[in-house]
Design a binder for these strands. Structure first.
Lengths: 244, 244
DNA sequence: GACTCAGATCTGTCATATCATAAAATGAGA
DNA sequence: TCTCATTTTATGATATGACAGATCTGAGTC
């Protein structure tokens, strides 16, 4: 956890700070974030913090209401579906380009990454997510289109917040789920690559939908009000909540 | 040109104001925008204006450097290519979904829109762009995925700024360019729909590349400095500039 | 217990002021 | 006319404070 060199701007420092806390799960879904407290914690005014939160809101990690507060976004089923449809579009495009233009080094590295991801999906949970993201990032980079990589990276950041929660999965995902995908990508046929990636992303959506199901109810219970106190915890208990 | 109801926030008012001026070409590419002047013009502080410009920067319409200024973004060839690759990904996805799930009304309306667009591509230049955008928006809406529609809409806003400039086109685009596309979309075969849309977007990219070629040189001449005075106009003359 | 309602507290929005830096304007020297 | 260093002006970044509105708290009521 190092300061990313010289942020050169308090706003970007605050941005990284809050983003990391969300991605690590220190801020839980639905939790209200206080600009002033974070500003005090970082020793700055709350204006650069506001700019940072605004940016995170654009990226879909936060949601806010004018004078009520800002909280970590709680997704609705439509959010998840929409997210995965956009993501499918982008990743299919990336995998087609990868199959067509990736270098030999790209393809070799991808094989190694896929093997690592598949291995960790069964054993090491905490390292699985970063490895999985790296795999997809490499595919995007192999497509040789920075704009596409950037768009994909943004969608991944959003989805990451959904995985910092309970992981009841261990659903028998095939042991070579990612290796099989990569095998097709490196083979070099864009159409087959697209097909494989499309299937891959769709599986991901089904998985996420299952995991997030309890939280959909929480979203409904919260409604439009931004609870600042612990009332939210009470709601969590009241809910039908098969949270685990 | 109506105020969109009650903006409820000065920042969003400034956002709409600046965005419209960019899209209408009142702000030309590379022109530096002064937060303070706009704030004065709108009778507000420059803080809400800053928030608006920040948002437009996220959307790719503006670019800024820390204490130099904020200007309407001048695209590089890589920008255009990246934009169209992302756009291709999204629109192909939309057209596949449209072919699969659009209602009968959707398909009927699309036919009419396509005919209108093709008609105006030859005659009415000023109405062509809005009609063209509406056509693509309807396709996205027919896909029944708000998130996808939103993503596409954002990419269109960016591209629109590129068309407020010289239109040397009138390149013999086939008279039924959009009608042919729509014919395939409404037929209902997702694979063929995807194919047709992919081809359509690629044509669009080639077109845009041709139009923007002169501006690529301007971008190089500008470099990283944000000219606030008229020196920029001199540069424009100096350039090889077959601007018209 | 549940419900209401007035104050206290916190929130985001916005205005104003200061500061370091980038670009412009100026002017002396070739 | 050109170049280069200087000053001047303009810009974005940030701090601070005021304000309206949302949420919270707690006493009072049933």
């Amino acid at each position: 956890m190092k300061e990313t060199a010289m942020p050169s701007s308090l706003a970007s420092e605050a941005y990284e700070f809050v983003k990391q806390r969300i991605l690590r799960g220190n801020f839980t879904m639905g939790q209200v974030i206080s600009r002033r407290k974070i500003a005090a914690e970082l020793g700055m005014s709350f204006l650069p913090v506001s700019e940072a939160l605004l940016r995170l809101e654009f990226e879909g990690l936060l949601e806010s209401r004018p004078r009520a507060g800002t909280r970590v976004r709680i997704p609705s089923p439509e959010d998840v579906r929409g997210h995965y449809i956009v993501r499918e579009a982008l990743e299919v495009q990336a995998s087609m380009l990868f199959a067509a233009v990736a270098t030999e080094e790209d393809r070799i590295e991808l094989h190694a990454l896929a093997a690592r991801v598949d291995a960790m999906s069964a054993t090491n949970q905490s390292l699985y997510l970063p490895a999985h993201e790296k795999l997809h990032r490499r595919i995007a980079e192999g497509a040789r289109c920075p704009a596409l990589s950037l768009a994909i990276e943004k969608t991944h950041a959003l989805a990451s917040t959904w995985f910092c929660v309970a992981r009841p999965h261990s659903d028998e995902s095939p042991p070579r789920r990612h290796s099989d995908l990569v095998d097709i990508l490196v083979a070099g046929d864009p159409v087959k690559a697209a097909e494989a990636m499309r299937e891959h992303v769709r599986r991901g959506m089904e998985n996420t939908m299952k995991r997030l199901k309890p939280y959909f109810q929480i979203r409904k219970a919260y409604g439009k009000t931004f609870f600042r106190s612990e009332k939210r915890d009470k709601l969590r208990i009241i809910l039908p909540s098969a949270l685990n």
